[in-house]
Design a protein around this nucleic acid. Structure first.
Lengths: 347, 347
DNA sequence: GTGAAAGCGCTAACAG
DNA sequence: CTGTTAGCGCTTTCAC
């Protein structure tokens, strides 16, 4: 299990370390003969440079900016901060500087502004949630031409292939919700797919989840379920939902495609529809309370903490150890009930 | 965001790098005065040595042995190999040598033998599944007195506190199974907790799961479920199970505490009890098939791949970057159904 | 007690 | 085109 060094190879090839280095990095200025000789050796030995030595040389402080919606406006984003802090802690001995910047989730202007701030900081990489697709493509190009690496998490810029992404397969997560709903609701009943849409940014999110949910039910044999779609905003939720429930009989479940399942439960509990099953997304404290009380049957966890932690780790390990940044990392679709909840909160 | 080096500190304190080093590592031979001066600076600056530089010096090849039951005997262990290979790949550029050794899960002798082989190899650390508790304590002491770091995964040596562990909270996983069962079976029905015990090594495993399962049902209000325990070995499973089902009416679900849920389903499918719900453990290919066919409702995933990968990573990062090895890492209790299955297989 | 110096593996600058 | 050299931050050895 001998590890070969550049020096070993130089000796074996009868050349100097400098020449070997030039071959490794294809810097040219090497004779055909020497090039071939060294290259052959490198392959035989399956040489990998020592990443420690390499980055020791390179005593640069890498700056990574994380751009995400303000967690004070929507607590869904809070765990992201925890993920960032975990990464900070993990890499505290290394030369990395992680900065966090927020924008307002319902203002494209604020999105622009924040990203311009980031551009001014000239970081080495930026990890962002591209909530607004058009604006994101614009800003992505600006970053690229400034030589800044762009990674995304949670939301994907659908049109741009080249940008790395950490997040969840939303279509599939809709299917997971459907499967769970199928197991806990009676046959011949109706299910509401409820989009609580405050800001209209989540449109594509919600559509993918709905598609997955509906496709699941379409595919089951002898399907006697009916799925109904309800699009509301938070303000008229109560009237709209109650009306909807009154208008349709045999409604046994509601699948909430955003993290606002607790809003739905709040309303159900004051009504005659207490027994309608609810499945929603995300471990917000309000949702957790209802999960523990069995007012929410399941939550699908999008692992926001893991998303940021992983996104940052990929970038840092790229800088420090020359690792490749995966193009797409789809996280598991996590099913949470009242009993396995705690095992996701501690981590 | 300046990173201070040993040289900076030496200059600031008006001493040499050597003295600073002696203070950092408490090697003594430093005057009271110099010691205090340097120490004060170190604290003010919150100095952390550059782990790259440190381990660059230390050009030692670390050897880690992984000891686990033979995956050819029980395919539950197969993913562990994948986890090991992932770690190998990840750290291929570093100076680590990972060796894998198997033992036979139903022979304490083979366990001893394998561990003696490992002792002879004089590794820096060993990651093992302590299937047999008495023998494990013995061997753990041998390793310790040989100065070999011991970590465990999947099974825990209950009596030894000092050994690090990566795995699952089995009591809680029993509760998770119970909660799921509760949601998919009708009231006033009976549930079988089925231990399929070939080798009697899993006794403590199974007991913890059973305890969790039963406790859950005890705690629910107006409990009208009955839980029944069935202990069988694989050979008499068929007769025992069918007899049991015939003797008791209203059985609606079976919770299988080992990875052999597929054995139960095989039997149910040839019987009049096709509609009995089954919940089991582990993503064996046989279980996966039945999960996809809805013959198994849920599987609880113990993440064997993650267990080994994490266990090895902790050890390597300890050696390379001086990170602390967590005393206990309890992995999430993963609920798997036919729809989120794929998101756990790829990872 | 202390400082100076060599060297870990790699890169980059500089002579030749 | 090629070899030599200095130096990244830290540890270790050796002389004073």
């Amino acid at each position: 299990m001998k590890k070969y060094t550049i020096k070993d190879i130089a000796e074996l090839a009868g050349v100097s370390k400098g020449t070997v280095d030039r071959v490794i990095h294809k810097r040219g200025k090497v004779s055909q003969k020497a090039f071939e000789k060294v290259n052959k050796l490198l392959e035989e030995i399956d040489y990998h440079p020592n990443p420690m030595a390499r980055s020791l040389k390179n005593n640069k402080v890498y700056m990574i900016c994380v751009v995400l919606p303000n967690p004070e406006e929507d607590s869904f984003w809070e765990p992201c901060i925890a993920g960032i802090n975990q990464a900070k802690e993990e890499f505290k001995s290394f030369l990395v500087d992680i900065k966090v910047l927020h924008y307002s989730a319902n203002s494209t202007e604020s999105f622009h502004e924040t990203n311009n701030k980031v551009l001014a900081l000239k970081p080495d990489a930026v990890l962002l949630t591209p909530l607004f697709s058009k604006e994101s493509i614009l800003i992505e190009n600006k970053y690229k031409s400034a030589g800044i690496i762009v990674s995304t998490f949670n939301n994907r810029i659908d049109l741009v292939q080249s940008v790395s992404f950490v997040g969840q397969d939303l279509y599939q997560s809709g299917r997971v919700g459907a499967k769970l709903m199928h197991m806990i609701t009676p046959e011949k009943s109706k299910i509401i797919i409820c989009h609580i849409d405050e800001t209209f940014n989540n449109a594509s999110h919600m559509q993918k989840k709905e598609k997955g949910f509906k496709d699941y039910f379409k595919e089951i044999e002898n399907n006697d379920y009916t799925t109904l779609t309800l699009i509301v905003n938070k303000d008229n939720l109560k009237t709209a939902l109650i009306n909807f429930l009154n208008e349709h009989d045999r409604i046994s479940g509601i699948f909430v495609t955003t993290s606002k399942a607790y809003n739905v439960v709040d309303i159900l509990q004051d009504s005659e529809y207490k027994n309608v099953k609810v499945i929603g997304y995300d471990l917000l404290s309000e949702n957790i309370n209802f999960l523990k009380q069995n007012a929410i049957s399941f939550l699908i966890h999008q692992s926001p903490k893991t998303q940021t932690h992983l996104g940052i780790s990929y970038l840092i390990e790229h800088f420090l150890f020359n690792k490749e940044i995966p193009n797409e990392k789809l996280l598991p679709i996590v099913i949470v009930n009242a009993e396995n909840l705690s095992t996701y909160l501690e981590h």
